[in-house]
Structure formats: C-alpha cells, structure tokens
C-alpha cells in the first residue's frame, strides 16, 4: 500500500471526533488537501494485499477556503486484495461550502472492499459526490452510505460489472429535516453474465426535508443469470416532507432474477399502539420505530464498534440533537 498519508493529531483538538475506532488509521483532508501527503488522495492495494486496519478518511471544509471545491479520491484494489474504508465528510463552519467530489473505485479479480460513507455537514453546505465503480471477476464491493445531515447531499453511483461473478451490496440511510435535500442516483450496469447486485436505500424525512431516489438497473443482452435487486423505502414523519422515488429496470437478457420495490409511508399505527399499550410513550415509540426502520441498513456494517457508533449517531439525530448543527462546530462523527 502506498503510504501517502499520515495521522494528523494536530487537527483532532479542533475536531472533536470520538475517533479513531480500534484498529483504524485516520487521514485528514482539509479543503481538498491531504494532510501530510500528496493530493489528490489515492490508494492502491497490490495483488494479494490485505489492509490490516480500517482507513478513515475525514474530509473537512474549513472557512479558510470558501470557494467551490472540486476534489477527487481514487481507490484501486489489486487482484485478491482487501480493505475497509470509512469516508467522512464534514464542514467546520456554517459557511456556504460547495463541494464537488469524484471518487473512483476499481476492484480487480477477487478483490474485496467495504466502504462506509458518513456524510454530516451544515445546512448551508452543498456536497455532490460521483462514484465511478468498476468490478472485476469475482470481486465483492459493499458500500454503506449514512447521510446524516447536510443542506444538499447528492450521491451519484455509476457501477459497472465488467467480468463474471462479481457482486455488490449498496445500502444507504438518509435522514433529512428542516429544508434539507437528499439526492441519490444509482446506475448499476450489468454488462456481463452471472453478477449479483443488491440495493437498499432507506430514508426518514422530517420537517420540509426532501429526498429523491433514482435507481437504474441495466441488464445487457449477454448478462444472463444476473441477479439484481433494488429497494427504496421512505418514511415521512411530517406532512410537509417529500419523497420522490423512481426505480427503473432495463432488462435485455432472458434468464435473470431482478426486482425493484419502492415505498413512501408513515409510521405504522398498529406498532405504535402495541408499544403504547405496554407503557412506552408515543414519542418514545416513534423513535423506536424509526430506529427499527434504520436498522436494516445499519446492520450491514460488519464492524461492531462502527455499527454501534452509527446507531447511536442515528438515534441522537432522530431525537433532534443535531438541530443545533447549523451553528455548531463540534462535527460529531
């Protein structure tokens, strides 16, 4: 692995992250500049290389640069290599930051990678990330997005299956309130036979929060024995929250298993009543329901410590403890 990053402890005094997790290295990128390393950030794993520690890449926007920032991160996993990456993005102040990011991820034959993407920015921030993903034969990629907070968050994922027997598991949980906008656009392209893809995106929308989901699965004429699934579920907490979902399947091969499902709903009244008959107050019961709704995504996080931390963040977010985020600079993560 190219060692083009270092741990930057100086930043952590300002950045009150309860990190690092056990067996995790941290890398800071401030206004697009890799601290202690070359910019833009790139990581290349050699053939057979196994990352012993998780790598947490923390990208922050600092008020010392308020212009539109275009930045990039590249990940290349060589044959049979494996690793886990946590990507966090934060804003240090409530300025009108605009960030456009491009992330390329390529996995060669039999490589295994997990990406956990944590997005937590202020209400004035606008962050758009485009992921270009290429998977080789037998490769496995998991991506879990946790879009906790941010004025406008847009994630575009373009994923191509280029060789047989590869698999991807894409999941996302997004939480919006005030006037936040969450926009997920996912293009999964089955170009070759016998690959599996799975998408699960769930959102909890409060106040005047808006979520858009566009998911396209394309199965090419040759891509027989494809299994491709997609689900998008939205929970509307307020009357003014909105969700737009458009699941799309384009299938040109005959022997495939594909499905898509999209729902926009409210909290289940029967569950709510059941909990209340046991003495759980209505407000607490709603939080429990929302946590339960979120859990299906969070349980995809394989690392227990990370999963617990994410769960607690989601709970605090649902309890409204992030409502002061528009002015706060604590950058919880």
């Amino acid at each position: 692995m190219e060692q083009n990053y270092i741990y930057a402890p100086a930043l952590t005094s300002e950045f009150r992250c309860k990190v690092p997790l056990k067996e995790t290295r941290q890398l800071f990128i401030v206004n697009g500049k890799v601290q202690g390393g070359k910019s833009p950030f790139s990581l290349r794993l050699k053939e057979g290389e196994v990352m012993k520690e998780m790598l947490q890449i923390i990208s922050v926007r600092h008020k010392s640069y308020k212009e539109h920032l275009a930045t990039q991160q590249d990940f290349h996993f060589g044959k049979g290599s494996s690793g886990k990456i946590i990507q966090c993005s934060h804003t240090f102040s409530p300025d009108r930051f605009r960030t456009t990011e491009k992330v390329t991820i390529s996995l060669e034959r039999d490589a295994v990678a997990e990406f956990y993407i944590m997005q937590n920015e202020h209400n004035n921030a606008e962050h758009s990330t485009s992921y270009e993903v290429n998977l080789g034969a037998g490769a496995f990629l998991k991506m879990v997005f946790l879009s906790l907070h941010g004025g406008v968050i847009r994630n575009d994922i373009f994923l191509d299956f280029n060789e047989k027997h590869a698999e991807c598991d894409l999941a996302g949980l997004y939480l919006t309130d005030s006037k936040q906008l969450m926009d997920n656009n996912i293009y999964v392209n089955h170009l070759v036979p016998e690959c599996n893809s799975n998408q699960l995106f769930k959102g909890i929308l409060d106040d005047e929060g808006v979520a858009r989901f566009y998911g396209r699965i394309n199965v090419a004429p040759d891509a027989q024995k494809t299994e491709a699934y997609q689900a998008n579920h939205n929970l509307l907490i307020s009357d003014k929250a909105k969700a737009y979902t458009s699941p799309q399947l384009e299938i040109y091969a005959g022997d495939v298993k594909c499905s898509h499902g999209a729902t926009i709903g409210r909290l289940n009244e029967d569950e709510l009543f059941y909990m209340r008959t046991r003495g759980i107050p209505a407000a607490e019961a709603r939080i429990l329901q929302q946590k339960a709704f979120a859990y299906e995504v969070l349980e995809k996080i394989s690392n227990t410590e990370l999963r617990e931390r994410m769960l607690s963040l989601v709970e605090r977010r649902l309890r409204g403890e992030f409502s002061h985020c528009s002015t706060c600079i604590r950058n919880c993560c």
Binding site: D270, E271, Y274, I280, L288, F293
Partner: peptide, 12 residues
Amino acid sequence: PIEIPGVTNVNF
C-alpha cells in the same frame, strides 16, 4: 401480537 422488526424484545 404485532411484529416490530429491528426492535429487540429485550430493548422493548
């Protein structure tokens, strides 16, 4: 009895 996925019986 209502099923509540994601809420463990013990937490409930």
